[in-house]
Design a protein around this nucleic acid. Sequence first.
DNA 1: GAGCACTGC
Length: 831
Amino acid sequence: MSPESIQNGDSASKSIDQRGMKRKRLQSQEHGSGESSTVNGELRKEPSTEPSPRDDQDDYPVGNFSPDTKLRLGKSISIRDLENRPHGGVQASQDTSTNGRLRQLRSQATILRKFRQQLPIWPSSSTIRSFLQSDRPQVLILTGETGSGKSTQVPQFLLSERWCRNGCIAVTEPRRVAAIGLAKRVGSEMGVRLGKEAKGLGKRQEDSVGWSVRLDNNVSRARGVRTRIKYLTEGMLLRELLRDPYLESYAAVIVDEVHERSIGVDLLLGFLRLLLFGEGDGPKRKNPLKLVVMSATTNVESLKEFFSEGCPDRKALVEQISTEEAEGEWEGFSDAESEAFASKKPDAPKKAHVAHPQDNKLAKAQVGPVSSYHVEGRQYPVKIVYLNEPTQDFVESALSQIFEIHRKEPLPGDILVFLTGQDTIESLERLINQCAQELDRKLPRVLTLPLFAALPQAAQQRVFERPPSFTRKVILSTNLAETSITVPGVRYVVDSGKVKVKQYRSRLGLDSLLVKPISRSSSIQRQGRAGREAPGICYRLYTEPDFLQMENETMPEILRSDLSGSVLSMKACGISDVAEFPLLSPPPRDALEKALIHLLQLGALNDSGDITEVGKQMSKMPLSPNLARIIIEASQPELDCLEDVIDIIACLSVENIFINVVSDEKREQAHEARQNLYRREGDHLTMLATVQAYLSEHSNRKAWAEKYFVSHRAMQSVMDIRKQLLAQCVQMGLSSNSSFQNSEPEKRTVTILRCLLKGFMGNIARLMPDGSYRTILGNQTVAIHPSSVLFSKKVEAIMFSEFVFTNKSYARGVSSIQMDWIGELLAGSGI
DNA sequence: GAGCACTGC
């Protein structure tokens, strides 16, 4: 493909005119305000300012970074990285007394305040508060583009409200790093001590900001401390709902990043709707709960409808509004907002049109249970360039596009390329490096940096480093850079328009992992990555008609996942008819049925569909139902292999513990080194052997891991999860006496495998005369994945922990089993 | 002969 074939002109600017009218308008305002380097420089002079993780959705007008390092971090970097920084943006105090520390925190907060005031959301504070002032439960749907400041400011706005005076606000985030990073940021803005750092102030109450994510709960339990804001991952709030169904400990819940439509968010919205507006059997909470749903996109209507549907006095609300004089103002305001956004008319009436209830005593009564509001973002304009003709090979198109940019555009300005996976990233990396050698000496050098989740942490961190002088970075990334990591310095985005998605097919009980076109919203999100620091260009490796044909939104995760975990959570929360559970995107009935049947087979539900004792125990574990069931099986006193099984389950809960080696030579080497760890019974016992070998290494585990080509990072998570699971089993009274530990290894191995089989009943295949494997339930052909120790081996039958279709059906995590175990098992389970 | 991205007391 020739560079000329890439369109560069009018059609590109047309589409930004349509969608990006705000950006154009913002451009003129923005260059003179906020993000300028003078402000940056000013902040830099403050000795107490540290480079802190930046909220990638809601930027500060000043990056808190030293421009010297050019290190700009997204909402998501490594947790360790966050932990190594002093809390709250304040460096260790020389005055170690509590009062000295608090004084210092307060002065820091005063400095930060003027930057908060420059955030686009700042002027909307009182309007936002006014939506939630009635004495009924209320929902506010708050949309705002990247950089508006909503994740950090909205909780602080609400704190001063009467209904929140002594309460705590929960804010959920989809990622751990985001939750921790935001908590630290907001803590320093408020000038309070973080989490357990807060110890109380004698007679006076001390306010604090905390966070709660798996394996890291940093919320003060001290008597004199009020935790005012708590950032949690979605999963953690779901766990809290199991314990405290009415969330009595919170005055408000803020659900952030709803547009990502994770399973967690969808379930939370369902539970929260029931909690707010659930069947009218009397008040469930002492005080009405307030809910703020925050989303980046404009799809307000479906959210509005979702909550209005659940609201019992919906009719009353509608009548009330239509009889109020100010009717047009409230409804009209939000309509004008969404209309303006949809029809791309600039300067549609906005704030001027809004009646601010705090200015109008009657207005309070006008605010219904469900309202919506939109805040402007802060983003530089990005020009869009489409291909004229569709491409057959996006790797090749990306290659020529990258070099066209490189020849044409001056530095600075790094290139971010969105690809589908490790394979395409590595092949493009090779191609670029070949071409770069023949590059004109006068042109800047090219530094190619791959970025995907399976890449070791140190290699991932390289995208944050400043390149050598006269060098352009070309970052080749998966979707990781779309939401989780914000790469600094990017002005050019090359978008393949593709993504690899995992989709569960309940009929086959199989995940497929296939390359698909992205959605329009995802395409816009990728484009936005070019306009973080300066105006940018997004080169789409597809045509404009292709763009127009894309789905509007990415399919919500709940429609493409195994629902057994979600259904178990619902059942544990007392939802008897799961088909009635309110979901924004209800999954098809057969997907729910499949999940119910699976839970029945596992013994989590009984024949009438009620949750069993085993099911209740399973629901408390931070594991999929399959894995949770295995733990419970292993805890039976007569089997007693709990500790060994926990070691295996911990490995199954993290990414691959073995390092992927690229070259053939290294692969041989790794294979050789791992011989001591490999077990002929299969991958699960190999995992056990690896954990045990790692545990018995006391001197230098890092070196040990390197020697065996084992991922040290993965093993550290295995250790954490193992510890957590052991503690939880003790707490749940799942026993483990070690009498059996001394029995013959052979017998122990069989016991362990039979426990695993209890959770992987559907995942069994036997060897056919032609040498292939076929599943017992479903009679599907399945191949042992090349990463398995049993790859190319023939055994009587296999059990596997994962069943994934890529270019064919693969079994991953495979163990050898015997046919006669299966008969007993199936007889016992009623299949 | 091959591995999208997240998450959980």
